[in-house]
Amino acid sequence: METVEHDQVCLVSAAEETVAAPSLSIALVSHDGAQPPSLTPLRPRVTGNLSAVRATDDVVVCYSEHGADDVKRLYGLLGRDMPAVLVAARGFDERDVISAFDHGATSYLVLSQTPEVCLLGAAITTARGESCLSPIAATTLLRHVARSPLTTPPDPLPHHNLTPRERQIMELLVTGHTIMEIAEHLTLTGKTVRNNLSTIYAKLQVRRQSEAILLWLGRQPQPTT
């Protein structure tokens, strides 16, 4: 069993690691009331009502057969104030993975591939705004991006506000490079790259890496109608 961490993106397979549970505000969306034991140390607030999710929550865990519908509804309720979202799907559906990220999900675990014991670490990682993916979810997203025609959106994206260095960093990020790989390529420190990314997120008016990548590719999350 192993976990492969790539700085801001963590590919989770079947790892089990001891994680110190921080104090976090976690909303666990579970329509049937089921609660994964591995999240118990984080004392999540279990609810089947999406309106109970607060913008001030550190992370929302959507624990269901498929989670994209919950992510869509949350985005419709909270918009860009939606907290970081971890989908913990009990089954795999390619369309569900794509739809979840199109509507602002940060992380996606497929529990038929990644055991529930990994949820604790994934929830903490997601609360930091970093992405955590089961390999099958990562593969699905990469294939989807490869298939998608990159057309120019009708309204200009706020790329013009970025410096040439920030543009370099974003181009490397969206092509799958890790923070340390970007730092090595540009002869920078990892801390400098992270600082640049924080500035980039502020300029692009996003809160996390997944939103920045989708925005850069011209596919912004859209609220449900």
Rank of each mutant, 00 (worst) to 15 (best):
R147L: 08
T189V: 08
T199R: 15
T178D: 06
M82F: 06
H185R: 15
P149G: 03
S38T: 11
I179W: 07
L28M: 01
L217E: 10
D155K: 06
E166I: 09
R167T: 11
R219S: 09
P37T: 07
A88F: 08
T189I: 09
E166S: 12
H31C: 02
T175S: 15
G218Q: 04
E166N: 12
L214P: 01
E130G: 00
P115Q: 10
R147P: 00
L109I: 00
T140W: 08
G129N: 07
G76K: 07
H31A: 03
E116D: 15
A27E: 03
Q222Y: 06
L109K: 00
T151V: 13
A202Q: 15
R165V: 02
D96F: 10
L197E: 11
V12M: 07
V174N: 07
V61D: 02
T40F: 09
T152Q: 13
D93R: 12
L197P: 01
T40Q: 14
D81A: 12
V193D: 10
C118M: 11
P37S: 12
R54P: 00
E17A: 12
T47R: 03
A84E: 05
T225G: 05
I136P: 01
P83M: 03
L74W: 04
D155A: 14
L197Q: 13
V97T: 03
V97E: 05
Q168Y: 14
H160L: 13
A27D: 03
E94A: 11
V46I: 14
V71N: 01
E16L: 07
A52G: 00
E116P: 02
S107R: 05
L42W: 09
A14M: 06
L77I: 03
L74E: 01
V59Y: 11
D93A: 13
W216M: 03
M180W: 13
L186E: 15
N196V: 04
L215C: 11
S107P: 00
V85R: 05
L142I: 05
A137D: 04
D7W: 09
L150N: 06
R165W: 11
G91N: 12
G76V: 04
T18R: 12
S131H: 04
R80Q: 11
A127P: 01
A15F: 10
R90M: 10
L42T: 02
A127W: 06
T125K: 15
P135M: 02
C10E: 13
R147N: 07
D70N: 10
T126V: 05
